[in-house]
Amino acid sequence: MAERPRAAPRLAAELRDVWKEFVKGGRRVEAVRAIDFAVAPNEFAAILGPSGCGKSTLLNMVAGFDRPTRGQVWANGAPVEGPDPSRAVVFQEPALFPWYTVLDNITFGPKTRRVPPEVYRPRVDALLAQVGLEGFASHYPAELSGGMKQRVGIARVLVMEPEVLLMDEPFGSLDAQTRLVMQELLLDVWERRHQTVLFVTHDVEEALLLADSVSVMTARPGRIKKRITVELPRPRALDLTTSPLFNELKREVLALIREERLRAAAE
């Protein structure tokens, strides 16, 4: 089992009594309400919830793209003021720069931060190998499959060695087969770096396979309904999904989601 560093005194990400309301065309939409949530360093935290419950809203506030209407968002011991490379994001769409090659997309961050090439070059080469894109460095995004694009999207943030990796349904638009490959890749990334991750998904199995904790959200306005600790041994592999403990956890989570759906329908 991988050795886990002891919990550091400061949290990787923390939301304290966070509320978010959007005003659009004079109408108010309360996206999330009274969220208290924290991600410990080296934790892989997953958030599960029905569509439109405010998962992206929550993640965007940690990323610094959106500001809470009320409450505080902290990351790595400082209040979140805006986007920062220490909180790198993998979007649902690959969001690669189509005018740059794979290599230029991956080196965008280091170059922007004026990291010397001799520092980032070895890291880039290692990452290209790790995500299985050797030989594609000079390709343009348009020449890649969806899964390959998403791998570039992951490589370009890992090269920054972020303190927190924020992932918003990163595999949601991929086919089932590719998704499995990507999940394995992500497990591998976690094993190597014990990378802190905040991971948003619809997929119960995906959340349980990857995460140390799964937080289930209520329907909109989203709140954290329950946080479940996933005590499955690491390193993990895809065959974990057939283990009894996994299925027990899955039943528990599905029951929570069903309960929430019934509650939402009753309103």
């Binding site: 769409e93 720069f97 965008f108």
Partner: peptide, 29 residues
Amino acid sequence: TNLLLLRAARMLGAGETTILRKVVFPSAL
């Protein structure tokens, strides 16, 4: 210019000038 690309550039540490040069200009080309 795609909002997602602007956000991507920002979270990768790009300031206004870099974004204008490396994202907005090529996107508008």
